[in-house]
Design a protein around this nucleic acid. Structure first.
Length: 898
RNA sequence: GGGUAGUUAGCUCAGUUGGUAGAGCACCACGCUUACACCGUGGCUGUCAGGGGUUCGAGUCCCUUACUACCCACCA
């Protein structure tokens, strides 16, 4: 990619706009990061590399919210680890999407060229698919860049690249030679839409209202005697080769081995006794071994013939007699009508049942007998299960481990051949002399067994998930023993959506262990689905999807990312709304303006004290400074711990609360007095804290909002050339005394603001105030009077701070703070309605009394004092004492209002 | 038929190892205080789905019921 003009590495001293504009900024920094090579892993430095292989988006359209979530989560972890100084590899790619891709291009060809793929021919059709893939891959990659994805594009991979193709053939050959890939004729899920075999996972059950038709089959040689069977698919009777009953079912005991005449067809079929039949309903089932899984098994047990009555497009074939050529649903109608006319239809019942559908082509599946390729799964699944059981693979959230385990324990062989054109061609060859072999070569010229050159390749392709399963190592160059493979396998984190645990995660683990001898990653983080405001799945057909590109254009990529990351935790579905994105945009703007405020007062020529130095002499700093730095250290520890536990949501929220609440609402406001000081040293001292604290906070926030933080960081004094490679902060000391004292100050300020609001005094009106603090807090209020004056809006000249007041004012609003029992009088002649004040005090006294009652009752409860931990009892006692003190003060004050 | 989640303020969701419920939005009031109206200050709102149990103490642990969502499953 060509880089445009490099941004100013140092923006210190530059003017900032009043409002943050994300789009241009995001683009600028993305190009900067990429051009500097920050997305590439640094050289080995003794630290274990952090490796994430990106789930390759399907190349069949544009980016959607699910992608945006995936990328936001992965980018956050990736950026965090990069700041931890680890060699980080985030390997991007894209997926050819097998059946899905083929269908999309088929549709496109039909739309633009009015041709079916068969009319076009295999070679021509594949040309079209490649063109489509090339076009859309670029589109998607650019969209990922807009999001801020810090992946190493130089290692980008595509499942149909030559490397992954080699990996597919090599793996196939290995499994084939080991006898783990084999061919077998079985009943399979046939999709008439794509005209291909599907695995069980690609079939979804849909509840539907249908009918149950009861049909009677006459017993040969016993005039007037019938067996009645019920079916939801009457057209399959054309392929019936028996009727089965339970061996112990008395109703049919004498009919075992007798023959029935198949209505409409006239064929004679036997009655067989089989344990697989339940004794409910009519107790007899028609047996169509070629078109039903259960019937297939019954057929095997009784050596029944298979009669396939369907063509590949699910129309009736030549075995269907007069119904030949009809579509399956048309045939169904005709057969029911004919049965009815001939007197074989006993009754028709409405019936609610599950119908198997093709997940991709959205048409009902037809079970059919067919010869396909299979993977013998047990030898792969057992070690994969074991890896989970002994903790080599962990799931976040943990419960998905159980899901994985259940599936692995009940797994069936996996059918991997697809009758499609787009995908990895099955590397099996045949010769005229009936030989068959698998190869890891792209092409073959002679039979490996008899050397004839009359050979051909299997026409089918592989299930798209076969190549996906190799992704963690095929992307690193395997089967070649590359340097990347050595450094980055096994990987660290696999992050994806929980709905592809079986499709993808399980297969990667199986292949990883079997082919590479080691698990492909140690942690599987599964995110939830993005839904609309009403909790519905976003989908193109419903039209309720929110386009991430539009959301980003409106509010910025950082805002979208922050929203997605904080809206919900792993494994939990998220209701997405643009309102939330707007809130995140506001947060971004808040940070922008906080920086702007700080930067405006800065003199670039004055070097401020560094943060490390400030922290080293923490106890000498003013109260507010000690407080905000202590809070930052708490935040740093919390955010780090939460990230270690994969909790992005909670860490994002803590950052939000700290920045907006602690830093902006309290610290910046409290700093304004010192910032306006005529003394340059006082000013520089507070500037050092403002810039130092903000700079560290930006580092913590960078994984969540990379572009904004990078931009703003460059306006502040900083070391290093970019925030993206700045060092992740470690937590320093916490001054608990300062925290307690500053909280007392905050509490008093809030009470004063509250009192003023109650009498609807203008917020900015300076009021007279008398503070009666307990002796240990009195010096704090005196020392920090400036802050009190500024933040509470009290009149500095008349402010009185004491620990003893003999004659309290009568014409005053009065508050007693909850935690420190500081009494505050706001003498406001004229504004105080004595009756209202008495009423208000009365109400408050009631509340405190109730609290005291509860507290006392709790302490008096048998067993509490004896059994509860001493710490808890002590806290309860302190609370009670505080409430009692507060009550006394409130009552004393009420008494003066008579 | 099995299984897994969820049910907390009007809405969206937090609630770490059980200690007596919180944040944003919305709403109401006041405010253009020299970063931000994409703002500030203050306020309002809860039988933490129902029932039972364990415990000195349960939104948090156990049992149970209801509803919602999803996953798995070859009942004609």
């Amino acid at each position: 990619m060509k880089t445009t003009q490099e941004p100013n590495a140092n923006l210190v001293g530059q003017q900032m706009e009043k409002t943050y504009s994300p789009t241009a900024t995001e683009k600028k920094w993305y190009e900067f990061w990429e051009s500097r090579g920050y997305f590439k892993p640094i050289a080995d430095n003794g630290k274990a590399p952090f490796v994430v292989i990106m789930p390759p988006p399907n190349v069949n359209g544009a980016l959607h919210m699910g992608h945006a979530l995936t990328m936001s989560v992965e980018d956050a972890f990736v950026r965090w680890h990069r700041m931890l100084g680890e060699p980080v590899l985030w390997l991007p790619g894209s997926d050819h999407a097998g059946i899905n891709g083929e269908l999309v291009v088929e549709k496109e060809v039909a739309r633009t060229e009015h041709k079916t793929k068969r009319e076009l021919g295999r070679e021509e059709f594949l040309k079209r698919v490649w063109q489509w893939m090339d076009d859309y891959r670029e589109v998607i990659n650019n969209q990922l860049r807009v999001l801020g994805v810090s992946a190493d594009w130089s290692r980008q991979a595509f499942t149909m690249d030559l490397g992954p193709q080699q990996a597919v053939r090599t793996t196939f050959k290995k499994l084939y030679d080991e006898g783990l890939i084999y061919q077998a004729e079985r009943i399979i899920n046939w999709c008439p839409g794509s005209q291909s075999n599907l695995s069980d996972l690609e079939v979804e059950m849909k509840e539907e209202d249908g009918f149950l038709w009861y049909i009677r089959y006459p017993v040969v040689g016993e005039e007037g005697r019938y067996i009645t069977v019920a079916t939801t698919r009457p057209e399959t009777m054309l392929g019936d080769t028996a009727v089965a009953v339970h061996p112990k079912d008395a109703r049919y005991a004498d009919l075992h081995g007798k023959l029935l005449t198949l209505p409409l067809v006239g064929r004679q079929i036997p009655v067989v006794a089989d344990e697989g039949v339940e004794e409910f309903g009519t107790g007899a089932v028609k047996v169509t071994p070629a078109h039903d899984p259960l019937d297939f098994e019954i057929g095997q047990r009784h050596q029944l013939p298979l009669i396939n009555v369907l063509n590949l497009d699910a129309s009736i074939n030549e075995n269907g007699g007069i119904y030949q050529g009809l579509d399956r649903f048309e045939a169904r109608k005709r057969i029911v009508a004919d049965l009815d006319a001939a007197g074989f239809l006993v009754k028709t019942e409405p019936y609610h049942h599950n119908v198997p559908y093709s997940e991709r082509a959205h048409v009902p599946i037809e079970p059919m007998v067919s010869k396909q390729w299979w993977v013998k799964i047990q030898p792969l699944s057992e070690p994969a299960l074991q890896a989970y059981l002994d903790g080599r693979i962990k799931f976040v959230p943990e419960r998905f481990g159980k899901t994985y385990q259940d599936w692995m324990e009940n797994i069936h062989d996996w059918t991997i051949s697809r009758q499609l054109w787009w995908g990895h061609r099955i590397p099996v060859w045949y010769c005229v002399n009936g030989h068959q072999w698998a190869t890891d070569q792209e092409t073959e010229t002679t039979c490996q067994i008899c050397s004839t050159n009359e050979i051909w390749q299997d026409p089918d392709v592989l299930d798209t998930w076969f190549s996906s399963g190799l992704w963690p190592f095929s992307t690193l160059g395997w089967p070649d023993q590359t340097e990347d493979l050595r450094r980055f396998y096994p990987g660290s984190l696999m992050e994806t959506s929980y709905d592809i645990i079986f499709f993808w995660v399980a297969r990667m683990i199986m292949f990883g262990i079997h082919v590479m001898g080691d698990v492909p990653f140690h942690t599987v983080y599964l995110h939830g689905l993005i839904r609309d405001e009403k909790g519905q799945k976003m989908s193109k057909s419903k039209g309720n999807g929110i386009d991430p590109l539009e959301a980003m254009a409106q509010y910025g990529a950082d805002a979208l990312r922050f929203t997605l990351l904080t809206s919900s935790g792993p494994g939990v579905d998220t209701k997405f709304s643009l309102q939330k994105t707007e809130d995140s945009r506001n947060f971004a703007n808040k940070i922008w303006n906080a920086t702007r405020f700080i930067v405006m007062s800065l003199n670039p020529n004055i070097r401020l004290e560094g943060f490390e130095s400030l922290q080293a002499r923490l106890s000498e700093l003013p109260l507010a400074d000690r407080w905000i730095i202590s809070r930052l250290n708490k935040l740093t520890a919390d955010v780090t711990r939460l990230l270690e536990n994969y909790d992005l949501s909670q860490s994002g929220k803590l950052l939000y609360d700290y920045i907006w609440g602690d830093f902006c609402d309290w610290y910046i406001e409290a700093s304004k007095m010192r910032l306006n000081s005529p003394d340059p040293q006082t000013k520089a001292a507070v500037q050092a804290v403002l810039t130092g604290v903000l700079e560290r906070t930006l580092r913590l926030l960078h994984p969540f909002m990379p572009s904004l933080t990078e931009e703003v960081w460059h306006y502040l004094p900083h070391e290093g050339e970019a925030l993206i490679v700045a060092v992740w902060p470690s937590a320093g000391p916490i001054d608990t005394e300062a925290v307690t004292q500053f909280e007392a100050l905050k509490e008093a300020i809030s009470e004063i603001r509250n009192a003023k609001a109650e009498v609807k005094a203008e917020t900015n009106r300076k009021v007279k105030a008398i503070i009666v603090a307990k002796p240990e807090f009195k010096p704090i209020f005196e020392r920090e009077a400036d802050i009190l004056v500024r933040l509470a809006g009290v009149d500095a000249n008349t402010l009185q701070i004491t620990d003893q007041l003999d004659t309290p004012p009568t014409q005053a609003l009065t508050k007693v703070t909850e935690n420190t029992a500081t009494t505050i009088y706001l003498p406001m002649a004229g504004l105080v309605d004595l009756d209202a004040e008495r009423a208000r005090l009365g109400k408050e006294i009631e509340e405190v009394r109730r609290e005291i009652e509860r507290s006392k009752a709790n302490l008096a409860k048998p067993g509490f004092v004896e059994r509860a931990p001493a710490q808890v009892v002590a806290t309860a006692r302190e609370k009670l004492a505080a409430a009692q003190e507060r009550l006394a003060k409130l009552e004393a004050h009420l008494a003066t209002l008579v």
